[in-house]
Every structure is written in structure tokens, then in C-alpha cells.
């Protein structure tokens, strides 16, 4: 799992870590149940503070993207994980909202937008 930080960005580092792990999970770039580096290992690799990585992992775990197994570490949540599923559905709805708005801005009618969606699903 690769995480690339932008030090000069305004986005706090723990946010950047969260975003990158989240998108890798959602895009399926990491396998479910894959083990993540430990909090301290990640801090060492990224050369950042342990409290920062702890916070990122805690929030990711609360949001259901990763799970913590005591004694073993952190793992990518399995896809049947309820929270993760809900989250993914939420992401899908967000994407739909954006798509619908874009379509309407382009002047398409709702039926045309639905046609386009069907086309993508079949193609």
C-alpha cells in the first residue's frame, strides 16, 4: 500500500492518510483482510508523528474502512463489513449527485441521464 504525503498542502496529514487509504479500499486496490502497516511502522515510513497515524487509523476504523484486531494489528475491512458497505453506498450516491448535476448543467433531461447510466452499466 502506497501513501504519498504532500507536506506543503493545507490538508492536515492525518486527513491525507485517511483519504488515500479510503480511496484504495473503495477502488479495490487493496485486498480485503490485507494487513496494514502498524501505527508505528507507518509513522516511521512516512517520517511523521505516531499520534498522527494513530488518529488516522482510529478514524478509519470508526468509519469502517479498516478493522483493528487486538494483538494482531490493523486490516482492511472485509467487503461484507456493514459500515464499509454503507460507506460505499454513500460514495455511490455522492457520485450520482455529481453526475446528475453535471448532466443537468449540460442541458440533458432526466430520462436522457438515466439512458446514459444504463449505457455505462451495460457497456
Amino acid at each position: 500500500m502506497k501513501i504519498l504525503l504532500k507536506n506543503k498542502s493545507d490538508v492536515p496529514i492525518y486527513e491525507q492518510i485517511k483519504e488515500q487509504i479510503k480511496s484504495q479500499v473503495l477502488e479495490g486496490k487493496v485486498q480485503e483482510n490485507e494487513q496494514l502497516p502498524s501505527i508505528r511502522q507507518l509513522a516511521k515510513e512516512l517520517k511523521i508523528s505516531v499520534i498522527t497515524t494513530t488518529r488516522a487509523y482510529n478514524e478509519l476504523s470508526d468509519e469502517g474502512f479498516i478493522i483493528s484486531v487486538s494483538g494482531k494489528g490493523y486490516f482492511v475491512a472485509p467487503k461484507n463489513n456493514e459500515l464499509l458497505r454503507e460507506r460505499m453506498i454513500f460514495e455511490m450516491e455522492q457520485a450520482f449527485e455529481t453526475a446528475v448535476e453535471s448532466g443537468r448543467n449540460a442541458g440533458l433531461k432526466d430520462e436522457e441521464i438515466i439512458e446514459a447510466l444504463k449505457g455505462i452499466m451495460e457497456g
Partner: peptide
């Protein structure tokens, strides 16, 4: 910094 972060990876 590399050395120090390696050192602190042991809790």
C-alpha cells in the same frame, strides 16, 4: 530524522 523515526518505532 530517519534514525529517530526508526528508533521510535519500538514503543
Amino acid at each position: 530524522l530517519d534514525i529517530l523515526t526508526e528508533y521510535i518505532s519500538d514503543e
